[in-house]
Simulated scan of single mutants.
Amino acid sequence: MINVGIIGSGFIGPAHLEALRRLGFVQVVALCDSELSQAQEKARQLNIPHACASVAELLAHPDLHAVHNCTPNHLHAEINRQILRAGKHVFSEKPLCMTPQEARELVALAERAGVVHGVSFVYRQFAMVRQAESMMRAGSLGRLFAAHGSYLQDWMLLETDYNWRVDAALGGASRAVADIGSHWCDTVQFVTGRRITEVMADLSIVWPTRKASAGGSQTFVHDPHARYEDKPVSTEDFGSVLFRFDDGSRGSFNVSQVSAGRKNRLTFEVNGSERSVAWDQEVPQQLWIGHREQANQLLTDDPGLLNRDVADSAHFPGGHIEGWPDAFKNMMAQFYRAVQAGNMPERPLFATFHDGADVMYIIDAIVKSHQQRRWIRIER
């Protein structure tokens, strides 16, 4: 068994735990949170044998092989440093860190440590996203012309919607782009096999001041009796980005956390000289394939219908529902197969610190483009 520790017990930590338990050969032996009582209570609820209140204590746990960093954004860089210096395999929530400088440092640390390193870009793990990537790599789409799409949510639609991510000191200089645009960029770069090299961005803050609950009520919880205090907002709610790939092809995408009715709608379309493909995360088991001179197709994730190199990413016969938790399991399975082998694969399907850093460079360029009102080249 591979022994794992998780740092952070909010929404995403238990999601990591569930996926790891489904693998069968990984066990979570310790949970860390900033307050010992909270860590102990959460560990009891989740049936994790040990709880601690410091990263150092977690890293000192006997026979610990890997650590998952599931903390808020501003803690990612320092905790990732600690894990790497302890020589543990590390799986980090995204974003990898807060700045391009931190990203370069963490990549160098990971390479020197010689450990397996991953970042939680989960959308590349859906069976139909992998099918699109396989088709692109095999040449069945032809020459890449363009890619476009969006990632739309509505959880920040109201003036009274507030979360730690709104605070730039905790969430970073970018919010919508860094939080969900990062997923879009990673997914589309994975599918196309191309790198975004230049961006032109226009970002928008629709609530320059938000009303935060003085009692600190949880995100997504409506309290009609809450008292509110005004909080200035410096990070974007909406953004539009034009971009260029390294092969000269073009693209665009929108991100929004204020699109009423859109809960978690990541969509992309890739146009090639032979055919197109399109995918919608809210209908994740279908891949639209567009043709010029024959009827369009709607491919579903029946393992018998997928390309042979991606069939293992769909786990049940056609017609059985699979979604985000199953993609999360795919991601963990790939990462822990590498941990079992003891080294990084030559061509990992899971996102690595290199991929996490690459997206940080894109986010940095998008912010600069908006501020300077011009095209900005990605500095890798």
Rank of each mutant, 00 (worst) to 15 (best):
H225Q: 11
A226M: 01
E229Y: 09
F243W: 12
F243T: 12
D246T: 15
V233E: 01
V206K: 02
F245L: 09
V241K: 07
R227E: 14
F245V: 12
G216M: 01
E229N: 08
A214V: 13
E236Q: 12
S217K: 11
S213N: 07
S240K: 08
S234F: 10
D247C: 10
V206M: 01
L203P: 00
F238A: 13
V241Y: 11
S204H: 10
A226Q: 08
G215H: 03
S217Y: 13
R210C: 04
Y228T: 02
I205M: 00
T235M: 01
V233R: 00
R244G: 11
S217V: 10
E236P: 12
R210D: 06
P208S: 03
V221W: 10
K231F: 07
R244W: 13
Q218I: 01
D237E: 12
G215I: 04
D247P: 11
A212I: 00
A212R: 10
V206D: 03
I196H: 09
A201T: 15
H222S: 05
W207T: 10
A214W: 00
I205V: 13
R195P: 11
R194G: 12
T235V: 15
M200I: 04
V199S: 02
V241N: 07
F220H: 14
E198Q: 15
F220C: 03
Q218M: 03
S234D: 10
H225D: 12
V241D: 08
E229H: 14
L242E: 15
M200R: 15
P208R: 06
G215F: 02
T219G: 02
D230N: 12
K211H: 10
L203W: 01
L203V: 10
F238D: 15
V221C: 05
E198M: 09
T219L: 04
P232D: 07
P232E: 08
K231N: 03
L203E: 01
R227V: 14
D246Y: 11
D230T: 11
G215Q: 06
R195S: 15
K211T: 01
A214Q: 13
A201M: 00
I196S: 04
R195F: 12
G248I: 08
V206W: 02
V233Q: 05
M200E: 14
D237I: 05
R210Q: 07
T219W: 10
A201P: 02
Y228G: 03
I205Q: 02
K211D: 06
P224W: 05
T197S: 07
V233L: 00
M200Y: 13
T235K: 03
V206P: 00
K231Q: 14
S204K: 08
P224H: 07
I205Y: 04
A201S: 14
K231H: 13
F238N: 14
V221Q: 09
P232W: 12
F243E: 09
V233I: 11
Q218G: 04
D202S: 15
G239M: 07
H222Q: 06
R195V: 15
Q218A: 12
L203N: 03
R210G: 05
H222E: 09
D246G: 13
D223H: 08
D247V: 09
I205N: 04
L203A: 06
R210Y: 09
D223K: 04
E198P: 05
G215D: 06
F220W: 14
R227D: 14
I205P: 00
S217L: 02
G239I: 11
T197Y: 05
A226G: 06
